[in-house]
Each structure stands twice: as structure tokens, then as C-alpha cells.
Design a protein around this nucleic acid. Sequence first.
DNA 1: AAATATATGTTGCAAATGCAACATTTTGAG
DNA 2: CTCAAAATGTTGCATTTGCAACATATATTT
Lengths: 215, 215
Amino acid sequence: MDIFKINLFDGISGEDVERMIVCFGAVFRSFKTGATIYDYPGSGDDVGVMLEGKASMIRTDEDGEVAVMELYSEGDIFGEVLAFANETGDSVKVIAESDCNVMFIKYSQITKRCERACEHHSRLVGNMFGLIARKTLLLSRRIEILSKKTTREKLMYYFQTLSKDYGAEFELPMSVTRLAEYVCADRSAMTRELSRMQSDGLIEINKRRVKLKKA
Amino acid sequence: MDIFKINLFDGISGEDVERMIVCFGAVFRSFKTGATIYDYPGSGDDVGVMLEGKASMIRTDEDGEVAVMELYSEGDIFGEVLAFANETGDSVKVIAESDCNVMFIKYSQITKRCERACEHHSRLVGNMFGLIARKTLLLSRRIEILSKKTTREKLMYYFQTLSKDYGAEFELPMSVTRLAEYVCADRSAMTRELSRMQSDGLIEINKRRVKLKKA
DNA sequence: AAATATATGTTGCAAATGCAACATTTTGAG
DNA sequence: CTCAAAATGTTGCATTTGCAACATATATTT
């Protein structure tokens, strides 16, 4: 596992990283596909940093209604201090979508001053700041999508953000079933809408392959 | 304006605050109700910190459809690095809902090391971390609301979060019109739903006064 | 390869919702 | 206070959507 791939330890030498891992109370854990990485409410002080793999935060309410709250990949962070989970009695978990490596650190250690006065402590906090700023971007994007009134608008907005990264033709980064949960629409209703969008010449879709025909 | 009311400068003496304001390139500005505080895309590096007053981020799309993206009050932060605004051609602005005092600092100065090696530079970054963590909480809460399928569920969830803070009876922190934009529903449809919820004995509502009858 | 679980695709129907159009009330500015 | 602007409340109607109940296809496991 190469933790230098993500920018968390940017500007910090390997030696210092070792020292700081102790200092931050960092714990590294691996998870198999399908495993529960985090279960809300958990230890409120833990912040998870995805080093490798993909995971998603899944909410299941009393009625068994499932919703994907967040999607995580390399560099994403999660934890109770970062998510308004479990206001109500719903089950909220982070589930590994692939084999994952996760680093857990203590939130209190981030804001607290380092007793050992690590030279690079503040550098790491700065790097963490970059990660959390990225998280707000993703959350905002999600809100943008959900704030659209119709399913069609939600999908079109989402497809447009994908096409900015991957071009007019791309593969959905999740299953259609998951996509329905992501845009918070009924799966069958969303499929129906996807068909209509194809009839109306907005997109072409075949399984997860999407071609956006109108910007 | 008492910038010590918010925790941004917690643990930093007034003298140091002065020095750091220079160091961070902080700029203080006041805005009258209705004024535009931030216009996306703006100067990408600026991060706004609300010191006093209330504001909201408003998106207006090509069709003139208005949506409240975020609500800001004391201690909230905003800026291009923190919001996925203007992916499409929509107009996105932060508008003062009351007279506001705002501090702008440079995002690059947060992550960068302080050349003057301010003793408390890292402390402020830690404090900023707290603010941005709070922001992710608010964004997550919003997503929780929007992820509910029906307007009734959205409202009930939102009311429940309010009742946690203010008890079973409370005043809406925004106009009903704004509430409709906040939950991304048509105003008339939402009003209709509020009436039904009252008929069904879930709530009592009179203007902005809401009484939650079922938890 | 067979068996099982998961994902995908389709349809009818009732309910929810957006939208337009309007009346009434409240707020805020001068 | 007066007037205009904004907010609130209501209704009819067409459309969208959730939901249930399927059939089929694909993936995964044994």
C-alpha cells in the first residue's frame, strides 16, 4: 500500500511519517469486499481516510429503504465529525465495495496541538484540510444533483459532470441500481426515464455505457 | 464586530490575530441586505468566513429556476474551493439575507507554510478545520433531507433536526417560500403537503410556527 | 456446469408533484 | 400612513414518480 499516492503526507519525509503515525494514533486496517468499515454511530473521534479501494456509505431506514449517501475512493475521508448521520434511528454504514485499505486517525489529534511539537504536524493538518475541502466539493455536487426537481434533470446534470472528466462517452462508475440510489429515485422509474431520454435523443445507453448527445 | 465570538481565532491572542490577518491576507468587508457577497465563478482562491449576519447561496438556472444551495450564518465558510458550483452555466451567488460582515482569506495561505513562521498559524488552520468539518455536517444533513423520496419525508426529517435543537415547537429559521427552495419542492405543492400533514395529525403549523406532534 | 444471487428491463396503477393561475395577507420602503 | 412588493394560501390538471409484480440477463459461487 502506497500511502504517498494520496496527498495526505505530501511534503513529509518517510521518517517523519512513521513518527507522526504514532503521534496521530493512526491505525491501518484492511477490509474485504462487502465488509463493514464504519458503523454509525461509532467511535465519534475516528476519521477514516481511504488509502485504497472503493466504499460507500449506505443508509437503511426503518422501512428497509436503501440510499447511497456517499461514495468513497482513494483520498476520501469519512467519520462521525464529517457526516450528519443517524439523526434519526436509521442504520448508516460504510461498506467496502472492493478490498480496501483504510487509515483511521483521531479527530481530536488534528485540531489539538502536537505535544511532541512535530515539525510536520501542521503540514499534515494542512493536507487534511485539502482532503476535507475536496469532500465538500463532492457533497456540494451531490446536492446540486439532488436539488434538480425531475429525475431527468438529475441524471443529465450527473452525466454532464461525468462527461467533463471522461468525455461525451463514458462508463457509469457504478451499477444502474446504485445510480438509482445515488440520485434517490426508484430504480424502475429511473430506468423508464433513461429509456425516454434515449427516445428523446438526449443520450444513448447500453448497460453502463452512456453517450451524452446534448451538452 | 467581535470576531472572537466564533472559534476561528480560538487560542490566539489579539496581538497575534493582528499579525496573522496580515499573514493570511485577510480582508474584512461589510454587506447590506440583498447585496452580492460572492459571485461564482469568482476569485477561486478566496475563502469567505461569515463573521456576522445571514446569507444564502442561490442558484438560478437558465429557466429562471431558483434553488437555495446553502444557508450561512456566523462561523460558516464558503468559496470556490468548497463548493461545486457552476459546473453548468447556472448563475450561483452568495446573497446577504441581512447585513453581513465577512472575512476573506486566501485558501492558498491556509495550506501553505507561513513564511513568517507564525506561532499560531497552525492553530488557525486547526480552527479552520473545525469550521470546514462543521460545513460537511451541514452539507450531509442537507443530503439526508434531499435523499428522502417524498416531500413529507423531507419535511419531517428537517423538522426533526430542528426539534432536536429547539424542542417540539419552534419557529422556522426561514420563510416558507425559502423552505420550499431548501427542500427543492414546488412551493404550492409543499404548502399542500404541509396542510395534509396537519390533517394527518403529524404537525401543527401556523405561518412559521411549527409544532411537531410525532417524533 | 449448475445453482444461486444480483442486476436489469418492463408494465399498470395510484399517488405525489410540478406548474399555472389566482386571491389574500404580510412586510417593508418612502 | 400608503403603496408596492413579497410572501402565503388554494385549486385544477397534466405529468412524473413510487411501488408492486413480473420476466430476463448477468455475475458469482460451489
